[in-house]
């Protein structure tokens, strides 16, 4: 493979930064959740790039575990969003303010 590993790492960093901005500026809980998925994928990409760089499969196994945890996290997160929607009738994070001090 002739592509430098650093290119993949910079792409991964860019995607992670875009995901961070998405979490910070979006108001819809579902879109915030999608941005978190984008961040998780960016980190998986850097794990696999480092695994290629160091010539070992440990990074790939870690990315595999991270996918499993992401699947569990999506199931629970979406169930929470659905139950918040049933309670407040909205998925905007600005409308969820029952615990506001």
């Amino acid at each position: 493979m002739r592509t430098p590993i650093a290119y993949f790492l910079v792409t991964s960093g860019l995607l992670f930064a875009i995901g961070t901005v998405g979490v910070l500026i979006r108001k819809n809980a579902l879109l915030i959740f999608m941005s978190i998925e984008l961040q998780l994928n960016a980190v998986n990409l850097s794990l696999i790039a480092f695994s290629r760089m160091h010539g070992s499969l440990n990074g790939q196994v870690l990315a595999f575990f991270s996918m499993v945890v992401a699947a569990a996290e999506v199931v629970v997160g979406l169930a929470i969003i659905v139950s918040v929607y049933r309670r407040t009738g909205s998925v905007s994070v600005d409308d969820v303010r029952e615990l506001r001090g």
């Binding site: 592509t3 430098p4 590993i5 650093a6 290119y7 790492l9 910079v10 960093g13 860019l14 992670f16």
Partner: peptide, 19 residues
């Protein structure tokens, strides 16, 4: 954040390093 990652990768891995 994106710039920070760019410079960290340039310092830590380097853009010439092939796999």
């Amino acid at each position: 954040l994106a710039l920070e990652v760019f410079f960290a990768v340039r310092a830590g891995v380097g853009f010439a390093a092939k796999a």
